[in-house]
Computed example of a mutant assay.
Amino acid sequence: MVTLSVGTGCAKEQSSGGDDSSQIVIGADLELSGPAAVQGEAYQRALKMVQADINKTGIKVGGKTKKIKLIIRDNKSTPDESVTVAKALINNDHVAAIVGAGASPTTMPVIPVVEKAKIPMISMGSSGAIVNPVQKYVFKTPGNTDIIGNVMMKAFAKKKIKKIAVLSVDNPYGEAGLKEWQALDKAGKIDLVAHQKFSDSVKDLSVQATKVTAAKPDAVVVWAIPPQSGLAAKALRQKKFPGDHVYYDTGAGSELFVKGAGAASEGSYMVHSRVLAGNEITATTPAAQTEKNFFTEYSAKYGGFSGFAPMAADALNLIVAAIKKGGSADPQDIQKSLENLSYDGAFGTYQFSSTNHGGVSESSLTVLQVKNGTWSLSDLG
């Protein structure tokens, strides 16, 4: 298990997550190796950037100015290791809160761990099952599966799309997406004509693409992160299925999707925050300005932008906003403040409550399209 402690120079080591130290220790349970490492790298970069910004002025807690100490651990993209990481952060590092895990499969088994320890966790996993039913100490930043489905359905209505095929990764994240489309099919809102699952380690999706295109769908929905989302784009294009009839969920929002898929990604659509097209955002509101500022800062610092980055940035900023709101870094006080928090973040707007620990609001998501090799705002948003 790889551990990276991102401290603040010579500041003393913190022994608890409480208010009696010079630092507030926040843990991060991230996928820095394994199949989901494309997410973890972006998360880690975003967290370091946000930590540095916060620590320029520090946080006023109990009359003292404190700084954030990040302890980042690699869960290797596996559920068992994610549980080990979470327990180490809680029992050994005595964190006040946890950012992560970064994916649905690595988040689900951690839920009972943080609930028992009463440590708030903000996940970057997308599955609605993370927060439904509501667990007291568990929150998330991505939009819930049904919200992504709603946004995509509005796009389908504009293009008069009815017959759908689904390609989904065979894990809890992909299963949540498939179940959403099966529910929409059962409700008569779409006609699910085919679906195929695949491993998160698959190297070729030609067989699955052949089977779904044989059903002659109006559109294919792909529920996967890179590199599999890019493999799907290539396989579908090889079957002569048009790119502008392929739709991706937020998980494809890495710069590696377009790079990996190349010309096969051209014309594809995805439901995501508008921050992914940060150069096109007109900052006419404080929320839009926040999104544009994050896009600009991250892109300048790292030489490109990842759609995963704002999810982690918001997770850390939400924890800090809760600390400021409650005037306390006690884990239970953070939980109480999170549950009554309204926040405009880089990924979108959050309105948490005792009955809603889910991610960004539906109004924060839009439909983007690959145009000339980059994600751009589309006319379907």
Rank of each mutant, 00 (worst) to 15 (best):
G243T: 03
S21G: 14
A214R: 06
G260I: 08
S168D: 06
D344Y: 07
Y43H: 12
A235D: 01
T374Q: 11
S22E: 13
K64G: 01
F352R: 02
P112T: 11
V202W: 04
G359D: 04
N75S: 05
S378M: 12
P79C: 11
T290I: 12
K301F: 10
A287D: 04
I147G: 00
K371Q: 13
D93G: 13
Q51R: 14
T213L: 13
K301D: 02
E255P: 03
S273N: 01
T285A: 02
H357S: 01
F156I: 08
A129S: 14
S201M: 13
F257D: 04
M152S: 10
I90L: 08
S126L: 15
G303C: 11
S82E: 05
K216W: 02
V360K: 01
G348N: 07
S342I: 04
N279D: 12
V131L: 09
T107Y: 01
V258L: 09
G188F: 11
K12F: 06
S342C: 11
I68L: 12
A117R: 09
L256A: 13
G262W: 02
I54N: 09
M270E: 04
D204Y: 10
L318H: 05
A263R: 06
K48N: 05
M311I: 11
S306W: 04
F257E: 07
Y298R: 02
K325E: 02
D146F: 10
T65I: 14
M108W: 00
V222W: 07
F295R: 00
D93I: 09
D249E: 10
V151W: 08
I90R: 03
K66H: 06
M311Q: 14
H94Q: 14
L231R: 05
L4F: 11
V271I: 15
K67P: 00
E255Y: 06
K69F: 01
L47I: 12
G188E: 09
G359T: 04
A46W: 05
I323N: 08
S104E: 10
V151Q: 11
A97M: 05
F305V: 11
S126G: 15
S5R: 12
G100Q: 07
A97H: 01
M1I: 12
